[in-house]
Amino acid sequence: MEIPYTVEARPDTGVFNAKLGVWLFLASEVMLFGALFSSYVLLRTGAPAGTWHHGREFLNVPLATLNTIILIASSVTMVMSWASLKLNDFKKYRIYMGLTLLAGVGFLVVKGFEYGHKFEIGLLPKTNTFLAIYFTLTGLHGLHVIGGMILNGYFLGPGSKMFKTQPERFTNRVEVAGLYWHFVDLVWIFLFPTLYLL
């Protein structure tokens, strides 16, 4: 049995099924991160005057800046990998997807360094409310980065065989993975100023 609407748009939705599926999933993700952001705002505004610990007391802004640049660059390489498939250039696709994967590794290495340093000096989630919400938000975001890397790794490795038999379907799959990756990057664009600068 053939799966319908993997390449052509479904008439009633105007998009292929996987794209509709990923946008519904991203809507649920907005609710998840939205709830955590709201918790942060409520905890911060509800804290008695002078008791809230600001991120700048504990966090490393230059390292977070580096991670912001890494993630923005990865969104560029991700869209370039999709564009390469559109142009039927599989070699370039592999290069750009490899770079996207490498950027994900770079982000996690920097984050791991940050976490490791905090644990070493005894800054743990139980230390104060700010660090509790910091580790929750960045930890959940980090898990999403790992999820995106597994997906991208599959499309760089075994999953890429589909390009030989069904190039349009594979291109659509990479577009859907790109939408997810952009969402993960966008969450960081909100996390960085909220946690590190404000």
Partner: peptide
Amino acid sequence: SLSLRSFHLFFIAASVLLAAWVGVW
């Protein structure tokens, strides 16, 4: 639209706004 192209342009616009804000900060 719901395309990667549109989302990418939206993301770049958000990044430009973030960059401007961090500049002021």
